[in-house]
Write a protein that binds this DNA or RNA. Structure first.
Lengths: 208, 208
DNA sequence: TAGATTGTTAATCGATTAACAATC
DNA sequence: TAGATTGTTAATCGATTAACAATC
């Protein structure tokens, strides 16, 4: 569904406020049928004989995805990844508020990045006492991932956005985990590259 | 498949060199059946009555994913994301070689990061003349994504690892695109969080 | 031999696609 | 009214699960 939003935004910039399921499908790489099925499972946003109104559709999807809910987030670890999340306003753009950042390094603690204050990770508990925290972006080194994630769970975090290569909270159904596994992504690329190479005439499709 | 590798590595550190499909499934969140089916589609790596040898299995998967192929990569844009890729050795760990980095900023051009030299993006073409380049990690701002990706395609890049929020090379079947869409990931998290919230007693499952 | 666990086939389930009637 | 395009049902396809025979 987020992909719809992205494609609609790109379409909006150049075209008019109207799009058909077939055009949308073409841009998404889906069939028109697929698109209509998808959109309809959330409600009848289209108009027969006309198509979909782009701005309305975007607004509907915003609501579905909870952009208006303004969940609050903390960032743990302000290395390159953590900083990227803060500096590029990923949270704000998607309806989240960043309420704090954490790190272990005395070089960072006490400073701020784009107005977000950095606290000592040892004081992680306190934030939960004073603010609502829905999501934690986990941007710590692999070695710290297990430990920090367990602390977060104990403190009652609702969701973890995991940027570490660790498999986090696997048997913790109460916590939502969304993984951004760089290595998985790169290895998938590697696999596809290898496939492509040894057979430019694709035969048996296997999907690592 | 990359997930198998990750889980096997974690298992390896604590347990012995043997694992059953059911144990592996438990750790992956798959059924034992699923695991056997997956592994068997690539070859009979297991031993009946015994299970799978962890180190052998890892080696097999390394080969399947092409870790031994040593594809070469360039990084375009050395902001936080680009730097994270270089500094954390993501490429090296997964069998890739970084041959160069590029940026527009005179502050960066000419410098190096962890031994990787940074060139002016205007000179992008030259690298293709002197080195084999298989993959480009696209870590530029949204506004530059379309332009740079088109240049890469013209130059004959084989694959793009896309970190921008743009939909890149959609109708370019010759180029492999692997997307790491942070916003999609965060919005998926947002959606799941919203779902969870308004019904702790889950009913109709819809998957944004 | 008995126990365990895979490889593999068959059954089930869900997701994708095709088709067409409803309707703007 | 005619043309276009959705909403929705039915048909197809693929992926997941279950089951069990093969075999270590």
């Amino acid at each position: 569904m987020p992909k719809y939003l992205r494609v609609l935004s790109e379409y909006e910039q150049v075209n008019d406020d109207r799009i058909s399921s077939s055009e949308l499908g073409r841009r998404l790489g889906y069939t028109a049928s697929q698109v209509r099925q998808d959109l309809n499972s959330f409600g009848g946003f289209g108009q027969q004989g006309y198509g979909y109104c782009v701005s309305d559709l975007k607004a509907e999807i915003d609501t579905i995805l909870g952009k208006e809910k303004h969940f609050s987030a903390i960032v743990i670890g302000v290395g390159n990844i953590g900083r990227a999340l803060i500096e590029n306003s990923f949270f704000e753009e998607n309806g989240f508020n960043i309420v704090a950042a954490f790190d272990v390094s005395p070089d960072y603690v006490g400073k701020e990045i784009d107005g977000v204050k950095i606290y000592d990770i040892a004081t992680l508990n306190y934030i939960f006492a004073v603010k609502r925290v829905d999501v934690a972006a986990l941007c710590v080194p692999y070695s710290a991932a297990k430990d920090v994630s367990e602390r977060l769970v104990d403190m009652g975090i609702k969701a973890i956005w995991n940027f570490t290569n660790a498999e986090v909270c696997v048997h913790q159904p109460a916590v939502i985990v969304e993984n951004v596994h760089f290595s998985d992504s790169l290895l998938t690329l590697s696999y596809r590259l290898g496939e492509r190479q040894h057979s430019d005439m694709p035969q048996k499709q296997t999907s690592a």
